[in-house]
Amino acid sequence: MIAFLRRRPGLLPLLLLAPAIAWLVAFYVYPAIQMLQASLWSGTLETGFAFSWANAATYPEALDRYSDQFLRSILYAAVSTVVCLALAFPLAYTIAYRAGRFRTLLLFIVIAPFFTSFLLRVLAWKTVLGDDGFLLGPLKSIGLLPEEFRILATPIAVIFGISYNFFPFMVLPIYVSLEKIDRRLVEAAKDLYAGPARAFQRITLPLALPGVFAGSLLVFIPAMGDFVNAELLGSVQTRLIGNVIQSRFLVNNDYPTAAALSFMLMAGILAAVFIYARVLGTDELETGIG
């Protein structure tokens, strides 16, 4: 076998790749094709499903019926991404440049939430943010907040939950790009542009952009598919497209609509990623030249 490979070295990488690729083809690509087919079914579970290209009408129908949830998902995911970015940048900056010997510890705390159960974390926030919970209860009893004030079951709670859960995905890539920056560049810039603010704007920020880019994708993508935060922290008015897909699939057994929605969500995400890459990519190029 080894002798055979020595004669044809070109085969080795293919051989190494084959098992993983075969697995992904069988359990990622093939199911996607199955789902495409299911989105073109008609019928109900009781009567059975039949395939026809004419059922493509399911797509515009589903898009029309669930346009609110789609738009809400995009809005919440975008806001969560911006919130994460705003919160994560200063933290990543501190860890990269100001933390000294605490750097490892701080990095560790950033990823610590991943070591407890995701659901338990969301439920913990549900406890903390409860209408009469730790946070609001005392504020209400001393009269700082009106009795009917609440955070749970509002868009704020859902965006808060999403932001919290994907926050480390934003901090880590930004930290990595900041850490890579050659500090001598910044020092030189401080001399050139006379001032830390300008140096930050002209050197640090542009060089951190790849991290910002990666972090934003890592937050935006899972946020688009979220249903757990919306389910546990939200209300009827905060249902996201993830909730609809989940309940169409698992509760209503409406496979065609659920599959069509999944496909449109996936297409939407890929389009968003592509546009984002184009916009940010060209920007980066320009700042690089300038």
Binding site: G242, Y255, A259
Partner: peptide, 14 residues
Amino acid sequence: ATPEIILGASLLTL
């Protein structure tokens, strides 16, 4: 880049 919910749903379909 695929949301978990879509991975899960497509595997269920399969």
